[in-house]
Amino acid sequence: MTSDLWFALMGVALIALAAFTFFRQVHLLRRILAFNIMGSGVFLVMVGMAQHQRETDPVPQALVLTGIVVAVSATALALIIFRRFYSVSGQVELDEYQIEEPTQNEDHASDTMKDNINSLQDALQSDDEAPAKPSASKGDQ
């Protein structure tokens, strides 16, 4: 058994472990970590399996490099949205019921909506003036 195949096998093991965590855990941060480990597993498979001709192939290396950049950007985005979500809601996990009912606090939502409409009316009445009412859209916080 060559070392390259070992890489691929370890990659598959990592993917399996991380996928298990990704589906089992509800904590959003843990799931981000699981996603990253899963990504590393995929990269190992990519590098390991493609090298079986006994010579170094530059293409998978380039692909993995791009893949890492993509994974880092995705992680950054996930982290920043998670941080914002945590500061707004105080939660570290998504509620399951939200799949069916996206707007739980209807009164609140419609209040903000009215704010938005008022500021839209303002904006439409004075076409050239800048509406400049950031408070209207940030009404939730």
């Binding site: 959003l28 996930a78 949205i81 998670f82 914002r84 979500f85 707004v88 809601s89 998504l94 509620d95 939200q98 996206p102 707007t103 739980q104 939502a109 903000t112 940030k138 939730d140 916080q141």
Partner: peptide, 10 residues
């Protein structure tokens, strides 16, 4: 940046 939008985005 509202709660529901962030949850949907996540």
């Amino acid at each position: 940046g509202k709660r529901n939008a962030l949850a949907a985005g996540l």
